[in-house]
């Protein structure tokens, strides 16, 4: 803070709070994150349970689960993302308005989870869209989802408005839309978006036939 501590305390006693605009802006944004209703599989049930009376996600500002992506701030990808569903997920992400966040809930959304060997399972949603918070678990408890929302709130609190440290949506040249994969004959095309996620081993050069021959 650019203001003297003692002066701030003195002003507070008179009922005047002095905060940076950035803090106020982030406080408003993080205290009312509206998720999109987007449950894919089992983790969706725990997401709904987190929204019910016992765990009550509404305390953290996630009051209304919007049905449409246009009105939502947060996409909680809860459940296994299959290759058939992946283009739809990316399209929904593109349809959300900036600033937007993604929580990957559960092992399946992070990396494919227990179904990683599947021919139809996408090994993690962060192959195509950027993810802000990952929650491990299968399924993670509702308390874990609340912890994730709190972590996201802390992340939002740390975002800056000043030049040089701005997040993506302040950059007029950066696009908020990510390319949507299309259905290929054997797999999605492209299988991974290399701008978002880099596979640890560059195995794209080795083809399937060469592996079988070895």
């Amino acid at each position: 803070m650019a203001i003297d501590e003692k002066l701030a305390l003195e002003l507070q006693k008179h009922g005047i709070a002095v905060v940076p605009v950035e803090w106020l802006y982030n406080w408003g944004r993080r205290s009312s994150i509206w998720p999109m209703q987007f449950g894919l599989a089992c983790c969706a049930i725990e997401m709904i349970a987190a929204a019910t009376a016992r765990y009550d996600l509404a305390r953290f500002g996630a009051e209304v689960f919007r049905a449409t992506p246009r009105q939502a701030d947060l996409m909680i990808v809860a459940g296994t993302v299959t290759k058939k569903m992946a283009p739809q997920v990316v399209r929904l992400y593109n349809q959300m308005a900036e600033p937007k966040y993604v929580i990957a809930m559960g092992a399946c959304a992070i990396s494919g989870g227990p179904f990683k060997d599947g021919y139809n399972v996408l090994k993690g949603i962060d192959r195509y869209i950027p993810v802000d918070v990952h929650i491990p678990g299968c399924p993670p408890r509702p308390e874990a989802l609340m912890q994730a929302v709190i972590t996201l709130q802390q992340k939002i609190a740390g975002q800056h408005l000043t030049k040089g440290q701005r997040p993506r949506w302040y950059d007029p040249t950066a696009s908020a839309e990510y390319p949507v994969p299309s259905y290929g004959a054997h797999d999605l095309e492209p299988p991974v978006n290399n701008n978002v996620y880099q596979r640890p081993h560059q195995c794209c050069e080795v083809t399937n036939e060469e592996i079988i021959k070895k």
Binding site: L40, A41, T82, K84, F115, Y119, V121
Partner: peptide
């Protein structure tokens, strides 16, 4: 349908 096809049957064979 098929948006949640996680090939449970093939996994069980392994």
């Amino acid at each position: 349908m098929g948006y949640l096809h996680r090939n449970h049957e093939q996994l069980a064979e392994k």
